[in-house]
Amino acid sequence: MTALARSLVPTLRTVGLAAGLPVLLVLGWGLATQGSQSFYFPGPATVARTFVDTWFGPAFVQDVLPSLGRFGAGVALSIVIGIVAGTAIGTTPWLRELLEPMLEFFRAVPPVALVPVLMLLLGIGDSMKLAVIVSGCVWPVLLNTVEGVRGVDPVLTETSRSYRVHGALALRYVILPAASPRIMAGIRLCLSIGLILMVISEMFAASSGLGYRLVYFQRSFMIAEMWSGIVLLGLIGVVVATIFGFVDRRVLHWYHGLREVARG
């Protein structure tokens, strides 16, 4: 075997293993819907065609971009609020004890139950949708930041204290880096909750957005369009998860390296 072939075989095997099942599933879906005229389950070719027709065009600007914009803004706001408030709460013991029961309670309220409340308070505009996303997304970041800041290795804090590293300097170079694995775990949860809330907030009384479209297609029995919307949401979820994985590896490369060494 030549060197090229030898390096090619493992690559091919990896590609085969990664692509095999998805290809089989799509083929199975195609075969299952081939002869049938099932109303609810169109074939993959129909869905793919509808996907292009529905989303590549004005709908992208009208529905997809505003949704993604609200999602991005809501998540960014949640991350900033969560980290700032979480650091303050985590580094101040009396504040933490004061707020802990309330935080436990608010975290436990299903964010969607707040949609009607926020609709009452803020109407049905963009601010309501943003508030819905933030009200659900902020908790995982906040609570994970609190835990992360609290759980900083005491040796680390005492060393930095004996070197007189205080205030902002300690925050920037000791506390936040040490808390970053927990904070990133919180952000991962924040992203998936944010996506759900983006859709839900648009299902109530909206006139644009992915959630609105999805409900509209379902109510008008535009089945293939509805499927294409589900596929689009899935794709957005996958893309967001991939981007997060990339950023996570960048930000926490030292941490993942440590874990691998520890595992041996």
Partner: peptide, 26 residues
């Protein structure tokens, strides 16, 4: 485990609310 990895990673992040319209139809 290796054969299902990519499929799982694709299906997992799909927001569960995306299937609400489908569930209602069925």
């Amino acid at each position: 485990e290796r054969a299902t990895h990519s499929t799982v990673e694709f299906l997992r992040p799909i927001p569960s609310v995306a299937i609400i319209p489908l569930a209602v139809l069925i």
